[in-house]
Design a protein around this nucleic acid. Structure first.
Lengths: 195, 195
DNA sequence: AATATAAACTAACGGGTGTTAGCATTGATT
DNA sequence: AATCAATGCTAACACCCGTTAGTTTATATT
């Protein structure tokens, strides 16, 4: 009889979610079946339901975990006393780090949110909208202080967040440039594009 | 008895693909069924097969149509005698225009390519890789001519293409800024970020 | 050792999927 | 009007899906 095993101090649910994140990233949420996931976890599909409520709950866990980390970091940055451009850089670096360290989770949260059921979907989209609004306000602030050139804050936010999302392409590649080089070049382009 | 009707001079297959592009953009390829598509087209699901080979063929048609348009435009730009930075700007504007004018097709091609079956998948990814390589070469050329600052060409390409892909967010929004304002601000940020 | 709890298993449910085969209807051609 | 071609329909195929119910096995507790 099989048994769910994972990293030290992980609950069985956490193991399932971790395995699911890899599968969903690779095949997409819809194309990944619970039977597929069960194979990766090492039990029968029906056994998963001893630890999770539903397939949907896995997606919720992944999306909201990522959202919460971004929001917490933004709150910390907003509370800091740095100049606006420095704050923007801190945020950019954090996003890049998340794409490096929690790539599967961030990828799924970016690409599969539309499979979230209501009211989670509305909640999630509202959080994202609010996050982008805060970033736009920060850029507005930077413009008014003369630290940032005149640009539509909305467009700047769209460019920054989308560009970082593109790290997925690097993740799927043979990584002929290092994570450090990627980060420094992205920060250079995105921050200097604002001056 | 129902009948497939579309724009003047469209074949039935083209109508089906057009309707499919909207459905796939809205719900995703996997979550869109042929029965769903049939409802949008106005016939029974089985009738679609009088005009198309398979669901997969629709995705192929969409992805390769988009790829061919990008490649054709790039070829034309490369053949032109403009300075490198001007060429980059022309390419950026073309991508933005495609996101405006053929949004559904471009969106699907960006997000659903992983559902392409072999050998179409490999072919498609090779074309995208080759396209990015050409862009990176262009940027390398601009750097060596002193038109573009020292930056990893690979990273610059990743940023540019990903940022433009983010127009999907604008497309899903209430569009409180116009397409023109979006385009000008994106060009400003992305081109000046290279100087 | 006996009992209780946790967790894995089997079997099945109710529903959906892409697609094919054969028939019926509509429209075009002679 | 008769015939042919195009195209829509019904019915069904073989399979897959997420999930539940009840049983069995493993582990923990007394």
């Amino acid at each position: 009889m099989a048994k769910i095993r994972g990293k030290k101090n992980s609950t069985k649910k956490e193991v399932i979610i971790e395995k699911a994140s890899k599968l969903f990233k690779e095949k997409g949420f819809g194309a990944s079946s619970m039977r597929d996931l069960a194979v990766h976890v090492g039990v029968e599909a029906a056994s998963l339901y001893n630890h999770i409520q539903s397939k949907s709950e896995i997606l919720q866990a992944i999306c909201f975990k990522v959202a919460n980390e971004f929001i917490s970091h933004l709150d910390a940055v907003e509370a800091s006393k740095e100049p606006v451009l420095k704050k923007i850089e801190m945020i950019i670096r954090f996003h890049i780090r998340m794409m490096m360290e929690q790539y599967e989770y961030v990828y799924i949260s970016d690409h599969e949110w539309r499979h979230l059921p209501e009211p989670y979907l509305s909640n999630f989209l509202n959080q994202r909208r609010s996050y982008r609004k805060s970033l736009a306000d920060l850029i507005e602030d930077g413009i008014s202080k003369g630290e940032i050139k005149k640009i539509e804050p909305y467009v700047a936010v769209l460019i920054i967040l989308s560009a970082i999302s593109g790290i997925e392409s690097w993740q799927r590649s043979r990584k002929q440039i290092s994570a450090e080089v990627l980060e420094e070049n992205m920060v250079k382009y995105l921050v200097e594009g604002l001056k």
